[in-house]
Nucleic acid binder design. Structure first.
Lengths: 199, 199, 199, 199
DNA sequence: AATGAATGAGTTTTCATTCAT
DNA sequence: TATGAATGAAAACTCATTCAT
């Protein structure tokens, strides 16, 4: 009997579906804001049924959390990629890290603000950025082991350095033209080197 | 809290009440966003009954429109005050105008974004800023009459000049330290003078 | 200080004010229905302040009750006027009564339905029509005293006769052209005479 | 009553649900009036949740519009059924049409008045009765093609004939006993035949 | 996995009624 | 007497979430 093509596509790999839903949510959240976007609109944009949304996310808040996680992952991936290149010394390594972070941040300010400010505004640099901090701490530890610098508290230092970068970028957000970016990167990298007593 | 006192109306001048409601709304909208703020919260913050809100505003959207109007009025008042001082010549007059606008804008970015971005984001410098443009156009016309410059289209020139300033400020939002402000004011004022073929 | 002419007219005789309010309410109730008419609209139509309404009526329902009372009064006045004329005999007197009632009813069906049906529909001939019944009972008693007929229960007879007339008119409402009215009057008058064993 | 059972949705075909909601609304509107009936009462009568109502109707007004549409549909269906029978000639066909319309109208006066008078009272025979007019126009055109009569303006004639019937029924509403109906049908049918120069 | 009708708590909005002036 | 700002209970309407299919 079931002749009519009721009910759209069909089964898709879970990852794809989840990503499609997050893409739809991201587009709408960015366009209209989180609260002003309804789950109905998200599923319509993603072209799935209402229930499907709740197959992949526990609540509407949950998709925001997902977006946050994805932001951090993307961020980390960009940094990892940059760090994978050859680097002459630890100073260059630090500079590369700073450059990658600044760009990754500035390229997605709107998304960053969305996923980190939504619930408790005015708290840039939340705990969720931790994955980045963790990576930086690891880098610092490797540098210490290699004798590049001497740090009694690599984790704490990582937190401070990350927040320093975060603050600098926050403070220049709109001036983010390519050339300004380079200046910003240079300033921050210098700051890092000084903090690490490099050179 | 809430010293009993339930019930009995406590009449206040309409202007005061309306302003109190707008103040309450502004505080909450700025803190939690427009959509996430309920009328119930607004009236609680303003310490009036639900119905009182609808005595002064047709809908929840209407209070946002009121906030927009008030923002422009405040903006204009600040500019007017600055222009009321003595000015050596038209060049100084233009500089004073630019300085007043830049400060009025930067001092209230959050509010500006709230009242102008809420419904259709990404459209800074909307038509509602017109009261400011109108003022600038009047200034340009007076200058033309005084022989300070020669402008075939004062209104159109005012629009372009205003949008130029708006864009410059948008582009520097976060760099807004006092000294940066001064540089920004200087740059924009220079731009204005050049556009008006002054000096 | 009070220079501005704020606040409209001024004191008026209570009767006038009350009637103006009832007129306003009647017009609106007839046009939009009772529930769909707000007290705000009534006071606006009557050109007084909100509070003034509650100076003359306890509730919104109360004005409907007032309209009901006024309807009955107007009805009775019309009947009284008709009965004040000279009448050859009791048969003519009865005929005059019937004629006056039928016309008074048919001339104001909409108003009658409004004031009597609003709350419990489908109950034409309510107790409030009693003033009419009372009058009829008095007429019957006077006739009995004059020896025109013999009635052990004038009040009960009045009720039955009144309801009979009411029912007949209800049953012909829309047929109420002038000529039809005359036929209706004739039929009902005949019914009355028979019930009273007249002639 | 109310055997617990709170919660769990019980899916039904959309048509059924919609009809149940309209049935509930019709019952209540007829009993208490449109304005005096709340959506809460409707959903309780229909035994569904509040939201379900808004799944099928945009607003409370919308369900009244739906009732109007349904009234016209039911009306047309009744007329169509009557016209589907064998008819000796066009005169009989016209008589059948008139009879069906008169009955369909008189059988549902209260509903007719509800759906057509609610918003703008005192305008029986609104434009929405058009589906009926359209049908009559089609009938007249077929008759013209069959040579039964000659009509330059079938549509306009249909409008006039329909309004004539509407008016006649309005004018006799309460006299609508079975035998009176027959007389009414006869008079109107005669009128139609005369207007069409039949026989 | 996917669907979408159904739910109901929560929000916006209305309006009869009160009372200090 | 008259006013109209203020009240708050109740009605209209929304939308995140559930679950039988």
């Amino acid at each position: 009997m079931k002749t009519a093509m009721t009910g759209r596509p069909r089964t898709k790999p879970a990852d794809i579906r989840r990503d499609e839903l997050m893409d739809a949510a991201e587009v709408l959240f960015l366009k209209k804001g989180f609260a002003a976007t309804s789950v109905s609109e998200i599923v319509e944009e993603a072209d799935v049924a209402k229930g499907t949304f709740y197959l992949y996310f526990k609540t509407k808040d949950d998709v925001l959390a997902g977006l946050q996680t994805r932001f951090v992952e993307t961020f980390c991936k960009a940094v990892d990629t940059a760090m994978a290149h050859e680097h002459a010394d630890w100073s260059e390594r630090i500079a590369a890290w700073v450059e990658a972070c600044v760009h990754a941040y500035l390229d997605n300010v709107a998304l960053h603000d969305l996923v980190f400010h939504q619930h408790t505004p005015a708290n840039r640099a939340m705990k969720s950025d931790n994955a980045v901090v963790t990576r930086l701490a690891a880098l610092l530890t490797r540098g210490a082991e290699a004798g590049a610098w001497n740090l009694p508290e690599p984790r704490l230092t990582a937190v401070m350095l990350f927040d320093a970068l975060h603050g600098a970028v926050d403070d220049s957000l709109a001036f983010g033209k390519t050339d300004d970016r380079e200046k910003l990167v240079a300033v921050v990298a210098d700051f890092y080197r000084a903090a690490l007593r490099l050179s």
